[in-house]
């Protein structure tokens, strides 16, 4: 089973429904888990997120999810962080003070720089938050992106981005004034800044890829 971790930050219905839509045909069960468990015997973990980094990480810790999540990842479970859930995987965030993250992916969460010039509106600056459909520019091949063409559009809504320290962790870059990492992977932890559950065919495709990666890894673990 795949666990969508519900640590009390908003609505998980869309994330759940999107996973359910692609998981059903693959025969994989998806559950929303709202209390810490021993995840090591699960197939994969999904860490959604919305709102502020500080509130999110505080909630996650207060509800006792940090240790079981880290144990699960250490045991080799694939983890997918979505939006703020991706940001939580990094070392720290500078959103309203400095907050310590889960240290699963090296790097820091930063605010988009102010006064980024808008490429299509002369003398104007880019709006923050970035809201809307932007492109995924592929950097490294990965099973998560199998069949997703370079330049595919996905839906974003965020003011902060993940500044990954290791360039080979960056699977896609997105251009919003700067080229920032929009999908990352470090070992068995993946992070995706856009909302796959709101990104139409491309988003569901990425979730389906995640499911299939999970399946192949589960087979690999069984074979060991």
């Amino acid at each position: 089973m795949i666990a969508i971790v519900d640590y009390g930050v908003g609505n998980l219905r869309s994330v759940y429904k999107a996973f359910e839509t692609v998981a059903g045909p693959l025969g994989i069960q998806v559950d929303i888990v709202d209390r810490p468990l021993d995840f090591t015997h699960w197939r994969a973990l999904v860490l959604p997120g919305q709102g502020a980094f500080g509130d999110s990480i505080d909630n996650l810790r207060r509800q006792g999810f940090e240790a079981p999540l880290l144990d699960g990842v250490a045991a080799g479970l694939p983890l997918l962080g979505i939006c703020v859930g991706m940001q939580l995987l990094f070392d720290e965030s500078e959103e309203m003070g400095v907050h310590e993250g889960l240290h699963l992916i090296p790097g820091r969460v930063r605010r988009f720089p102010p006064e980024m010039p808008d490429p299509i509106r002369n003398s104007r600056t880019l709006r923050i938050p970035q809201i809307g459909w932007n492109q995924l520019h592929r950097q490294y091949p990965d099973p998560l992106l199998a069949g997703v063409p370079d330049g595919a559009y996905a839906y974003f809504a965020h003011s902060y981005y993940c500044d990954a320290t290791e360039s080979d962790a960056v699977l896609t870059l997105t251009d919003y004034g700067i080229h920032y990492p929009s999908i990352v992977r470090h070992h068995n932890a993946w992070g995706i800044q856009c909302h796959p559950e709101k990104s139409h065919t491309v988003g569901l495709h990425i979730l389906r890829n995640f499911m299939q990666t999970v399946e192949s890894q589960a087979l690999g673990r069984q074979g060991q």
Partner: peptide, 16 residues
Amino acid sequence: RMPEETMLSGPEGVPT
């Protein structure tokens, strides 16, 4: 953003 059906490889978005 043009509809993705024209972009994804493989039918029904199945990875190829």
